[in-house]
Lab assay of single mutants.
Amino acid sequence: TYTWNTKEEAKQAFKELLKEKRVPSNASWEQAMKMIINDPRYSALAKLSEKKQAFNAYKVQTE
């Protein structure tokens, strides 16, 4: 089980997950979700809006 003390740690864990699963920077949210949804870190960020925000930040960083 994973635990995160801060929102920032949770966001980092979520981005690490995207990186580890090699989600391409041109992937849509739907494509990315299919690649990461079974990992416990997918739940790091509770709100869908937070997940999408972190995903978009990840995409910008990896382009």
Rank of each mutant, 00 (worst) to 15 (best):
A13F: 04
K21A: 10
W4I: 05
A54D: 02
A57H: 10
Y42P: 00
S43I: 08
L48I: 11
F14H: 00
E30S: 12
R41G: 02
N5P: 11
I37F: 12
S43H: 15
D39R: 00
N38C: 10
N5F: 13
K15S: 13
T3Y: 10
P40W: 11
T1C: 15
A46E: 15
Q53G: 07
K47D: 14
P40L: 07
Y42K: 00
K21L: 06
L17Q: 00
K15I: 15
R41N: 02
T3D: 12
S25I: 14
K19G: 12
S49D: 12
K59L: 10
E20R: 02
E8V: 06
I37S: 13
E30L: 08
Y42N: 02
Y58H: 05
Y42G: 01
E63H: 13
K51Q: 04
A32C: 12
Q61L: 12
E16R: 05
Q12L: 13
S43C: 13
A27Q: 04
E50G: 02
N56Y: 14
S25V: 15
Y58M: 03
K59D: 03
K34F: 09
D39S: 02
P40T: 07
E8A: 13
K21P: 01
F14S: 00
K59N: 04
K51V: 03
K51A: 04
E8Q: 09
E16D: 14
R41L: 02
Q12A: 12
E9Y: 04
D39N: 01
Y2I: 15
K34M: 14
D39F: 01
N26G: 09
A27M: 09
A46G: 13
V60Y: 12
N38L: 09
T62Y: 13
A44R: 04
I36V: 05
A13N: 05
K59S: 05
A13R: 05
E50M: 04
E8F: 08
Q53L: 10
F55I: 03
T6Y: 04
A32E: 00
W4A: 09
S43W: 11
I37T: 09
V60F: 14
Q31I: 09
I37C: 13
L18V: 02
F14I: 01
E20N: 05
E63F: 06
E30T: 09
S28P: 08
I37A: 13
E30W: 08
T3L: 13
Y2T: 14
N56D: 13
P40A: 07
T1I: 14
R41S: 02
F14R: 00
L45E: 01
Y58P: 02
F14T: 00
N5V: 12
K21I: 04
T1D: 15
T62G: 12
T3C: 15
E16M: 08
R22I: 06
R22H: 12
P40F: 13
M33L: 11
K59T: 08
T62D: 10
I37W: 12
K47Q: 12
K19T: 14
A44Y: 04
N56P: 02
A13V: 11
D39T: 01
Y42Q: 01
K47L: 14
A32F: 01
A57K: 10
K51N: 02
N26Y: 14
M35H: 06
A54M: 09
R22P: 03
N5M: 08
I36H: 00
Y58T: 02
A44M: 04
I37D: 11
K15P: 01
S49K: 11
L18Q: 00
Y58A: 02
K59C: 10
M35V: 07
K11L: 15
T6R: 01
S25P: 10
A13W: 04
L17W: 01
K52M: 11
Y58F: 07
A54H: 04
N5S: 11
A10Q: 09
P24F: 03
Q12E: 13
W29Y: 07
L17G: 00
N38W: 06
M35E: 06
W29C: 03
N5Q: 13
Y2G: 15
W4M: 05
S43R: 11
E30P: 12
K7E: 12
E20L: 03
S49H: 12
E8H: 08
A57L: 12
E16G: 09
K51P: 02
A10N: 04
R22V: 07
A27I: 09
K51H: 02
P24V: 02
L17Y: 02
T6P: 03
Q12N: 11
A32N: 00
E16K: 05
L45Q: 01
K11N: 14
I37G: 07
S28K: 08
N38S: 14
K51R: 08
Q12P: 00
